[in-house]
Amino acid sequence: MSTVNCQLSTVIRIHLRLRIKQRRKTMILSDIQKFIAENKRASIADLKIHFRMDGDALRGMLNRLIRKGRISKMTEAKKCGGCSSCADDATEIYVWVNAGESVSEKEPVSATCH
């Protein structure tokens, strides 16, 4: 009987961990959405700094928001004037999609771009 209880307890703990992990992922996804909505645009470099996450993990979540139609990825971000030292992460830009607004091309590319 105790072996069955132990196995059941283990299954319950695993299930709870998975639910907590899923809830965190949902919270982070909504936090990313909120961050981009408030700032109108964000580079992957900005998001990495703000959320303290790996770029590939962020891209997976960003792709989900793109599929939902909440954000879009700028096709080709222009580097800032003349320095040519901006990292690729600083020019990989994601933009909030809102039918009534557009983001100016003249705004700075990223907070991390010089």
Rank of each mutant, 00 (worst) to 15 (best):
S2Q: 05
S2T: 11
T3E: 13
V4H: 04
N5P: 02
N5D: 13
C6K: 15
C6V: 11
C6R: 14
L8D: 02
S9D: 04
S9H: 06
S9Y: 03
T10V: 13
I12T: 11
R13K: 14
R13D: 14
I14R: 15
I14D: 07
H15R: 10
H15E: 10
L16K: 11
L16G: 02
R17P: 02
L18P: 00
L18F: 14
R19V: 15
K21T: 06
K21N: 12
Q22W: 10
Q22L: 11
R23K: 07
R24F: 15
R24S: 13
K25E: 15
K25I: 04
T26R: 06
I28F: 15
I28A: 13
D31S: 11
I32V: 02
Q33G: 02
Q33T: 00
Q33A: 05
K34I: 02
A37Y: 09
E38S: 12
E38C: 08
N39L: 03
K40C: 11
R41W: 05
S43V: 12
I44P: 02
I44Q: 03
A45G: 07
D46E: 14
D46H: 02
D46C: 05
K48C: 15
I49F: 13
H50D: 11
M53I: 09
D54R: 04
D54N: 11
D54A: 04
D56Y: 12
D56Q: 12
A57C: 10
A57K: 08
A57V: 07
A57T: 06
A57Q: 10
R59N: 08
R59Q: 10
G60W: 04
M61N: 10
N63V: 05
R67L: 13
K68F: 03
G69V: 01
G69P: 00
I71F: 05
I71W: 02
E76W: 11
E76C: 07
K78T: 07
K79R: 09
G81I: 02
G81Y: 10
G81M: 09
G82L: 01
C83A: 00
C83I: 00
S84L: 08
S84I: 03
S85M: 05
A87M: 10
A87H: 09
D88A: 08
T91I: 15
T91Q: 10
E92F: 06
I93R: 03
Y94W: 13
Y94Q: 04
Y94D: 05
Y94A: 04
V95Y: 11
V95G: 07
W96A: 06
G100L: 11
G100W: 08
G100K: 11
E101N: 01
S102W: 03
V103Y: 12
V103S: 09
E105M: 06
E105S: 09
K106C: 09
E107S: 06
E107Y: 08
V109A: 15
S110I: 04
S110K: 13
A111P: 00
A111I: 08
T112F: 05
T112M: 08
T112G: 04
C113Q: 01
H114Q: 03
